[in-house]
Amino acid sequence: MNIFRLSGDVCHLVAIIILFLKIWRSKSCAGISGKSQLLFALVFTTRYLDLFTAFISIYNTVMKVVFLVLAYATVSLIYFRFRKSYDSESDSFRVEFLLVPVAGLSFLENYSFTPLEILWTFSIYLESVAILPQLFMITKTGEAESITTHYLFFLGLYRTLYLANWVWRYHEEGFFDQIAVVSGVVQTIFYCDFFYLYFTRVLRGSGKMTLP
């Protein structure tokens, strides 16, 4: 464990908590892509199947459980409790265009052709595109509440810190997980455009982030 990965995991947790609390307290999921949250819940489900078969550390187990619980709790807020405020009209990204290529690729490019490994690979590839429905929804509505942008900021920060974690681990331990790194770089690139808007608009105190 290194400071980059630990702070990355903390940023990830903060992002998920920000989103959950925003929906819970405002009793609304307006502007939130339920599809992205479904994809994230699928990412955690297919990645953390080893929760019961491989014990790595207390931290690892606790964080996996927390991520799974919060992911499903957020999905249930969006699709059940506050479903009236769910803007399915704007959340129109065709997730099948993500799931099919990601599933196909996880069968083609993986470390070993076993169910657990293929599901893990699927979760890695899926995570890199899971935010797209949310980013698409923001471009479609042309705006995002500032709390939603803070959620995206911490999510992007978590991914950026993971890149630093991999540089550190390669330098210190010679660790290099090609599938995770390539997929992580692609995922982080998707946040670049958002980061630009975030720093030039939201942090200028304009409250809402409105797209040009």
């Binding site: 990965r5 995991d9 990830h12 080893d50 491989a54 790595i56 550390s57 690892n60 964080m63 996996k64 991520f67 993986n110 470390y111 070993s112 490994e117 893990w120 993971y162 974690n165 660790f175 997980d177 995770a180």
Partner: peptide, 10 residues
């Protein structure tokens, strides 16, 4: 391929 990569990351 090399599948001895530890899955210790979240």
């Amino acid at each position: 391929e090399d599948d001895k990569i530890p899955k210790d990351e979240l």
